[in-house]
Design a protein around this nucleic acid. Structure first.
Lengths: 349, 349
DNA sequence: TTGTAAGCGTTATCAG
DNA sequence: CTGATAACGCTTACAA
């Protein structure tokens, strides 16, 4: 209850009968401390309940013991994305046991993404960054490099990068979805893609196009901003076309669920008249009717591996490129055999 | 490109021909600096591109210029909750323009919630906390107090608290939902509630019970953990009962959407046979079929007000209790007139 | 193996 | 109004 000032390294040194310097050495277990002294020092520290001051340490070492995650997407779009929470939990799994903390910054109306990076760096608030939602020709890589900090990117950049990366081959997930649908007899499949400025959205779209072409299936790609609203809109457009697809591969679960709503509204039965697949395998998707067939990635593992990789980079390790296990297609109820061609359209040409 | 060390306050002082102390005074615009000197000092700082070192400042003032948000819920439950992203965006709206940062910590399998608070505090990594998901008899209040830090709670605690709070009267939202349903002729309404250890979940449940009783409507409450899975399970139980409700008020949108899935699966038409309401007004709910009637709160505004309140508290303001504007019921398609009593059940007693 | 002393970049104190 | 000087709590040469 008393406002006793916390003990400092000097208190420990005095109590152990050694110098401050030696306490520091003992603490960071560096060579050159006799077992005897080390024991006495640790003992004294324990008795005093001393923990080294991060601030003192920070000032003298020039490190922050913190990593930054800047969220650039608009909060309205991101609010719906369950990926982040699981990913962040994964980061924390590692950071929390390594004395690191996670600084979360969001670009706001009054502050652009790059300013956010600059601010965190110029205040020396972080030692490194996690770069998510990699974009084509992503300026953040050169930015972080110029800031003399390190980073780990989620996915391989499409440009030269000095940083480690941790990737998931989500193209494989899309390919399984297309293969699954082709096997069910679908000959006209659409893809509702995310923004093509985002590398992973583009990679999924490319994988879709290639897989569909390889399976000799007619295909279309519609681009969206990943939101439920645009997912719904894209679905309406597709279903209203002259030759509507019999299956739609969505680039995330939210758009797939919104698409399901659109289909139901039009009286189109899923999966009888239309098959749909999602991406992310969200909990909610499993409880809709029909339950959503979706590509499952392990966001939490992605987080732990990313954190470890960043810590290694901070410790001076050479850049590495980690490839996580391939995402798996979880088949549920929203995909089924292609409908017979008779009932709808098609007699026009 | 050269590794020039960044300028320090001493450099600025030298260049301006004054002492370090005066530079500090000028910077923090404190009285006792002649306009002339101040101008010279700011000029010198600008020329040198000097920014005060947060670390030096931190060591000397004992402040961190950071606030912490500890997430205690399991990531699997929270991953689905869109509230957090919008709320965090709101916090950032304010923090980003106040030189504060947000430290996000998650309780992990290896580290309990209280240890997380303790760790952040003992490392002096934050000056204050945002306490979310307030629980009955919440230990975190005494904890933060004993840590000699400040905090802002989301909602009023049910115990004595020295901290400011920012609340939304979500009971009002639930009451509108019940009133809306009663007006539509529903005489048997259920509530799928969140964990009753969480104050806001309990408040919603209480509001439900009172409103239903006041409207002389039969009512039941089923408790869940807020997840889609338990929301679905609760719905199955309710619909399988001898006297199933004709309307269900869910404590969040995710459970409502899962409940909708369950109803559809059972061939129960919404809103013809069953009306449902959600809470949060998520984007996705708007795109389902039927579009979800839901209670809308402004999470982002909650964030900005919370951040401002916390900043005030850090500046030494007396605790205040802010009440945000009442949430509004957004009526969409998932609620409709109560079904006629004939078709289902009811002829048994 | 250990002690000494000089930083790290602020803010605070207190005579001028 | 000014300007030394001393904290703040640590790390790290350099000496001993």
């Amino acid at each position: 209850m008393s406002d006793a000032p916390r003990p400092t390294i000097a208190d420990v040194a005095r109590r152990a009968g050694v110098s401050k310097g030696l306490v520091s050495f003992a603490l960071n277990d560096r060579p050159g401390v006799s077992p005897d002294s080390r024991e006495r020092i640790l003992e004294a520290a324990r008795e005093l309940g001393w923990t080294p001051s991060l601030r003192g340490r920070s000032l003298s070492t020039g490190r922050s013991f913190a990593c930054g995650l800047v969220i650039g997407r608009s909060p309205d779009v991101i609010a719906a994305d369950p990926f982040f929470h699981s990913f962040i939990a994964g980061l924390e799994d590692v950071f929390s046991t390594s004395g690191q903390i996670l600084v979360l910054a969001a670009a706001t109306p009054g502050r652009h993404e790059t300013e956010t990076y600059r601010g965190l760096a110029s205040d020396r608030r972080v030692d490194g960054f996690v770069i998510t939602d990699l974009r084509a020709d992503d300026e953040r890589i050169a930015l972080v490099e110029s800031l003399r900090l390190t980073a780990v990117t989620l996915g391989h950049p499409d440009i030269e990068s000095p940083f480690s990366s941790v990737s998931v081959e989500d193209g494989a997930g899309i390919r399984s979805a297309v293969a699954h649908l082709a096997e069910l007899g679908h000959r006209r499949i659409a893809h509702v893609a995310g923004p093509q400025t985002m590398l992973h959205a583009r990679r999924r779209a490319d994988a879709f196009t290639q897989a569909a072409a390889a399976a000799s299936v007619e295909h279309v790609v519609v681009t969206t901003d990943f939101s439920a609203a645009e997912g719904a809109e894209a679905t309406r457009t597709l279903l209203a076309s002259d030759e509507p697809p019999t299956a739609i591969v969505y680039s995330n679960d939210h758009m797939a669920m919104a698409g399901l709503g659109v289909a139901q509204r039009l009286g189109i039965r899923v999966p009888l008249d239309l098959s749909i697949t999602g991406f992310d395998d969200t909990e909610l998707g499993r409880h809709l009717h029909p339950a959503l067939t979706s590509v499952a990635t392990d966001a939490r593992e992605w987080g732990t591996v990313t954190a470890r990789t960043l810590l290694d980079a901070l410790a001076g390790a050479d850049p590495i490129h980690v490839e996580l296990s391939e995402p798996a297609l979880i088949v549920r109820e929203s995909t089924g055999p292609a409908p017979h061609p008779h009932p709808r359209g098609g007699s026009r040409d």
